[in-house]
Design a protein around this nucleic acid. Structure first.
Length: 420
RNA sequence: CGGAGUGUAGCGCAGUCUGGUAGCGCACCUGGUUUGGGACCAGGGGGUCGAAGGUUCGAGUCCUUUCACUCCGACCA
C-alpha cells in the first residue's frame, strides 16, 4: 500500500476530552473518529485494516479449533428475548424499535436467544452434537455511559460463539478447548494477559472465566497469584484474601481490561426456549450449552493500552496494519524513490505486509514522516535516504526506537530475517 | 440514573464577568523558498457562536427552556 493513497488524518492535538492513551492515540493516528454520537465511531482505513487483521486471527484460531462461522441478523425480534425473560433483564441497554408493521425488534447486544433459535430449528438428534458456531459482527448496547473510545463503545465488534452438547462433560471439554484457543489468540496478538475466575453476571450459568489484558487503565480489578497461573476478578473473591486458594502463593491486586469471557451455560437458555434434541433413549433433552465471547474492537484499544509510549502506538507484529513502513527521506530525489519503490516491490513479493510512505507534497518532509511512523506505530520503519550512496539503509524498530544500518544489496533477505 | 463540567471554523482554544464590526494557533487552499525530525515567507478560503424563546436600538455575551458531549460515581459478557 502507498501511504499517499490512504486517508490517514494524523493530528498533533487530541480532543480535550479523551483521557485514555488508546483513545487519544487511535484518534490522533487516524484509526478512528467519533461519529455523531456518544460511543459511535467511524473506522478509517487504517482502523479498518487493523480491525480486520485482528478479526482474521480470531477466526483462524477458532476455525482450527473446529468452530463454524455463521452470520445472524443484527436485528432480532423482541419475542425471542421475551422467551428467556431477558427483554426485561437487559432493560434500557437493549435498543428497541418497531418496523412498519409495528412489530418490535432490538439491535442485538449478544445472540444467545437467536443462536438457540437457529439450533432448535435445525438440530434434532444427539448424533448432530456437539456443534460450536460463532459469528464476528457488530453488536449494540445502549450503555448508560459509553466511554474511553473503543474500550466501551455502544456499537462494537464482538466474536460470539455458542456450543451445544448432549452432556455436561462434553460441554466442559469444549469450555476447556475454548480456554486454550483463547490463550493462543491472545498470545498471537502479543498481549500480556491473565485468565481469571469471574462472575457470570447477566448471562447466567455455572462457571465463567475472563481474559484480562493487564493494563493500569483497566476497568476491572483482579487478584493474581505470583507463583501460579491463578487469578480472579475481585467480584468473586474476598478483597482481603492474601493467599492463593490454589497454591497458597501471594496474591497481588492489579488492573485488567476484559477482552474475552467464556461461560458454562448449561440449560439456562435451552430450557426456557425449549431447545431440545432426541437422546439415545429417544427422550427429549435440552441442549447443554457454553458461550464464548471476545471483544474484537475492544482488543484494538487493549493492545494500544498495553503497547504505547509518549510518541504513539506500538502495534504488535500480528495486529499491526502494516509490518513495515518504508520512509523515503527526500521524496523528490528520484534515485531515493526508485530504490524505495524497488525494495517495496521486492518485499511485497515476499509476502511482507508493507506500506510505502511515498508522499512528495511539500508538507510531508522527513520529520512529518517520522512523526507519523511513531504515532501510527508500525512495528518497523526503513529509511531510504542519503546513505544509499554508501549502499546503506536504516531499519528502525518502533518498540524502543532502536536503529541499525543494513546493506542495501542484501536488504530484502536481511529485513525478512530481522522482522519475521 | 445521581454529582460536576463543556458547547464559538475540521482540531485545540480566547472572547462572555462589564452587550456595540467574529478572533488566535494548528489543519486546509495558492505561490515561492526549503527538505535526515511536525520548516519559513506572502496571500487566501472556511462561522446561522449547540438549539428555541425572551430582554434590548443592538445579544457569542444578560434571562428562561431545551439538546448534546465529556468527566466522577452507580451500573455493566
Amino acid at each position: 500500500m502507498k501511504f499517499s493513497r490512504l486517508l490517514i488524518p494524523t493530528t498533533k492535538e487530541s480532543p480535550n476530552d479523551a483521557i485514555l492513551p488508546s483513545h487519544k492515540l487511535l484518534l490522533r493516528a487516524g484509526f478512528i473518529q467519533q461519529s455523531g454520537g456518544s460511543g459511535l465511531y467511524n473506522f478509517l482505513p487504517l482502523g479498518k485494516i487493523t480491525l480486520d487483521r485482528v478479526r482474521a486471527i480470531v477466526k483462524d484460531e477458532l476455525d482450527k479449533a473446529g468452530c463454524q462461522e455463521v452470520h445472524l441478523p443484527i436485528v432480532t425480534p423482541i419475542t425471542l428475548w421475551e422467551e428467556t425473560g431477558r427483554a426485561d433483564k437487559f432493560g434500557k441497554e437493549l435498543l428497541r424499535f418497531k418496523d412498519r408493521h409495528e412489530n418490535s425488534f432490538v439491535l442485538s447486544p449478544t445472540n444467545e436467544e437467536a443462536m438457540v433459535n437457529l439450533v432448535r430449528q435445525t438440530v434434532k438428534s444427539h448424533r448432530q452434537l456437539p456443534v460450536n458456531m460463532y459469528q464476528i459482527n457488530w453488536k449494540f448496547r445502549d450503555e448508560v455511559r459509553p466511554r474511553f473510545g473503543l474500550m466501551r463503545a455502544r456499537e462494537f465488534l464482538m466474536k460470539d460463539a455458542y456450543s451445544f452438547h448432549s452432556s455436561t462433560e462434553d460441554m466442559i471439554r469444549e469450555f476447556n478447548l475454548m480456554e486454550e484457543t483463547y490463550k493462543k489468540i491472545f498470545r498471537r496478538l502479543g498481549l500480556d494477559f491473565r485468565v481469571v475466575e469471574a462472575d457470570s453476571g447477566a448471562i447466567g450459568g455455572s462457571g465463567s472465566k475472563e481474559f484480562m489484558i493487564l493494563a493500569d487503565s483497566g476497568e476491572d480489578t483482579i487478584m493474581v497469584c505470583s507463583s501460579c497461573e491463578f487469578g480472579a476478578n475481585i467480584e468473586v473473591l474476598d478483597e482481603n484474601e492474601k493467599s492463593c486458594p490454589k497454591c497458597g502463593g501471594e496474591l497481588t491486586k492489579t488492573k485488567g481490561i476484559e477482552a474475552g469471557h467464556i461461560f458454562q451455560l448449561g440449560t439456562t437458555y435451552s430450557k426456557p426456549m425449549r431447545a431440545e434434541f432426541l437422546n439415545r433413549n429417544q427422550k427429549l433433552e435440552p441442549f447443554i450449552m457454553g458461550t464464548y465471547g471476545i471483544g474484537v474492537s475492544r482488543l484494538l484499544a487493549g493492545i494500544i493500552e498495553q503497547n504505547h509510549d509518549d510518541r504513539g502506538c506500538i502495534w504488535t507484529k500480528e495486529s499491526a496494519p502494516f509490518l513495515i513502513d518504508i520512509i523515503v527521506a527526500k521524496a523528490k530525489d528520484k534515485n531515493q524513490m526508485e530504490v524505495a519503490t524497488k525494495l517495496y516491490n521486492n518485499l511485497l513479493e515476499e509476502g511482507i505486509s508493507i506500506i510505502l510512505d511515498d508522499r512528495v507534497d511539500k508538507k510531508s518532509g522527513f520529520g512529518v514522516k517520522m512523526k507519523d511512523f511513531e504515532l501510527i506505530g508500525f512495528p518497523y520503519a526503513i529509511i531510504i535516504g542519503n546513505d544509499i550512496k554508501d549502499n546503506k539503509i536504516e531499519l528502525i524498530k518502533r518498540d524502543g526506537l532502536v536503529k541499525e544500518e543494513l546493506s542495501l544489496d542484501s536488504a530484502v533477505a536481511e529485513i525478512i530475517k530481522k522482522v519475521t
